[in-house]
Design a protein around this nucleic acid. Structure first.
Length: 575
RNA sequence: CGGGAUGUGGCUCAGUUUGGUAGAGCGCCUGCUUCGGGAGUAGGAGGCCGCAGGUUCGAAUCCUGUCAUCCCGACCA
């Protein structure tokens, strides 16, 4: 490809609407343009990268026995009503009507339509397991699209759905996908980590892992162990209680006046004690009840864990009125002692506390020397707190480290949720009708591309890992007016193409500085400069984008030299 | 959905307070000079000032409505 003919409109300035680095760089490098909020045009270079990632995904899916198919984006509402998600999905589901007034959804995911297909076509255990996948645009009317391709309303996603005859077989399918995902992100040249995750609203039974590309700009917080390979989304990370029960003698319960003291920090200061001696009582509401969650004062509640304990998706901090009605006091003075009318859920750590401090359910008063078991009894004692760095690993008690990541993929055991709702059944060896056991496995392709940039860039622009670079090499003739130089450059370009290298030649009549800046911005892994030395000494300069290293090599050997680097770097990322 | 902000050539922005008929830099086109890290110079093209109403002799500027975009939060298979 000649750069003079390539539509790669680079920008010198930072577009006002872009915030995160991947968005800025994709915009500036001429990879994408915006069509509407959260909806993007992939320009030729951007689309080449997408296709590279899709191809890697495709190869690894096929290797595990996945079969690619194409599913409709426009899906009939009836199917969504059948699964119950027409109502549950809410405003996030793009909905439209045809000329007859029939309702449709733009697929945000494809469980319904694929289950519909399989229930109609698969009847026997002999046809299972079945692994079907598609790589297509998906649609979610996000409340707040942001960060460019990171959270769009239209995005490219690979979804594979597995259909198995039983849980054991599902485990095998799940394992296959887990391995395939590890290979995919390795092959893309990304630093990533599979982490244990919370299943969220998708429901389903069994485990789930998220694949996180490590980046400080990531939206997800994870913890992982220094010592073993435990890693989890903080939403899911298990808290370990290592403290032994305190040997302190229980003192007599006593009320103290604490006028105007409503926060944990103020209370600790006021009573001249540590936050770990306080019990934080948080009042929450669900659609059916009010609950009080207790955690140690120096800990944070993990709302996801609490949601799971309560079995609800609808969990809110109670409003002031609810708190006042429940406790008979202003907010900031809630406590578990003699509290009626709400379920009390205590974190495991709370039950180990002795002579603790809690709200007195009375404005301007707290209780000291509160002892769980003696002064109150929680309805449930469970792990409901947020795990932080420095805490012990739940597997090996090693030290946990916190990091941030971008969720680019998730593997998920669905169980029979959709097969049950949609009636996807088969006959087993005994001629008995069984529900298919399903799994779903997604990879955000466009998000992976954005994540790759978050992880691979510098002040000058993108630094593509070789396997997903739009082109491997850019040949830059210093002067296009120098006919001899151009000839050498074009010859080299042709030879590289013939050698199977993906190469562009910057034949624009621009000053060298402009071409170098653009090459750095776009992030071609290798840059070959054909300048005066090519004529005088018969050498060209090969520069690595990643580390800036320069090699001067003879023209004759240049193709071999480059081919080796390209192949080696791709091989290096092939597990 | 709540809060905040912004819409002026392709991009970044000034002009709006105090109404008088649209500017700069970059980019683009042409010529000349330049040519190893975003050149210089001369000339040129390009703008329903987001949209719709209103006020006014006159609106980018004031008023009302509306749409879009971005940020923070809530939310998120």
């Amino acid at each position: 490809m000649r750069v003079s003919e390539l539509l790669a409109p680079t920008l010198r300035e930072v577009p006002a609407e872009a915030e995160v680095i991947s968005h800025v760089l994709m915009f500036r490098a001429g990879l994408i343009r915006k069509a509407a909020s959260g909806v993007y045009i992939y320009l030729p270079l951007g689309y080449r990268v997408m296709k590279k990632v899709m191809q890697i995904v495709r190869e690894e899916m096929d290797k595990k026995g996945g079969q690619e198919l194409m599913l409709p984006i426009i899906q009939p509402a009836e199917l969504w009503m059948e699964s119950g998600r027409w109502d549950v999905y809410g405003d996030e589901l793009f909905r439209l009507k045809d000329r007859h007034g029939r309702e449709f959804a733009l697929g945000p995911t494809h469980e319904e339509i694929i289950t519909d297909l399989v229930r109609g076509e698969v009847r026997s255990y002999k046809q299972l397991p079945l692994l079907l996948y598609q790589i297509q645009n998906k649609y979610r009317d996000e409340r707040r699209p942001r960060f460019g391709l990171m959270r769009g309303r239209e995005f490219i996603m690979k979804d594979l759905y597995s259909f198995d005859k039983d849980d054991a077989s599902l485990d095998v399918s799940y394992r296959k996908m887990y391995e395939a995902y590890s290979r995919i992100f390795t092959r893309c040249g990304l630093k990533y980590r599979p982490v244990e995750a919370d299943p969220g609203a998708i429901g389903g039974s069994g485990g789930t892992h998220e694949f996180m590309v490590m980046a400080d700009s990531g939206e997800a917080a994870i913890v992982y162990c220094h010592n073993c390979n435990y890693a989890a989304n903080v939403e899911k990370a298990e808290a370990v209680v290592t403290d032994a029960p305190s040997g302190e003698d229980m003192l007599a319960l006593q009320e103290v006046s604490t006028p105007g003291v409503r926060t944990i920090a103020n209370l600790a200061e006021f009573l001249n004690t540590g936050a770990d001696r306080l019990i934080k009582a948080l009042v929450y509401q669900t659609e059916v009840e009010t609950v009080v969650a207790l955690v140690r004062g120096d800990r944070e509640l993990n709302e996801i864990k609490l949601q799971n304990v309560l079995g609800t998706q609808q969990l809110f901090m109670a409003d002031e009125r609810t708190v006042t009605d429940l406790t008979g006091a202003a907010t900031g003075y809630a406590g578990p002692v003699n509290l009626k009318g709400a379920r009390i859920i205590a974190d495991k750590e709370v039950t180990l506390m002795r002579n603790a401090v809690t709200g007195a359910n009375k404005t301007d008063a707290h209780l000291i020397n509160v002892n769980p078991g003696r002064d109150f009894t929680p309805d449930e004692v469970v792990d409901i707190r947020l795990v932080r760095a420095g805490e012990p690993c739940p597997r090996c008690l090693g030290e946990l480290v916190e990091a941030r990541g971008i969720e680019v993929g998730q593997v998920f055991k669905l169980g029979t949720k959709y097969s049950k709702a949609l009636g996807a059944k088969f006959l087993d060896e005994n001629g008995r009708e069984q529900l298919m056991v399903m799994g779903c496995y997604g990879i955000g392709v466009s998000r992976t591309v954005a994540a790759a940039i978050e992880q691979n860039h510098d002040n000058d622009g993108i630094i593509w890992p070789m396997p997903i670079a739009p082109y491997h090499v850019i040949v830059v003739p210093v002067s296009t007016k120098d006919e001899e130089q151009m000839k050498l450059a074009l010859n080299l370009y042709d030879s590289l193409r013939e050698a199977g290298i993906e190469v562009v030649i910057d034949d624009r009549n621009e000053r060298p500085g402009v071409k170098f800046k653009d090459a750095d911005l776009i992030g071609y892994p290798l840059r070959v400069v054909v300048g005066s030395k090519a004529l005088e000494e018969g050498t060209v300069e090969i520069k690595y984008r990643r580390n800036g290293n320069v090699h001067t090599v003879k023209l004759e050997g240049a193709v071999q030299f480059i081919k080796k680097i390209v192949e080696d770097e791709i091989a290096e990322h092939t597990p």
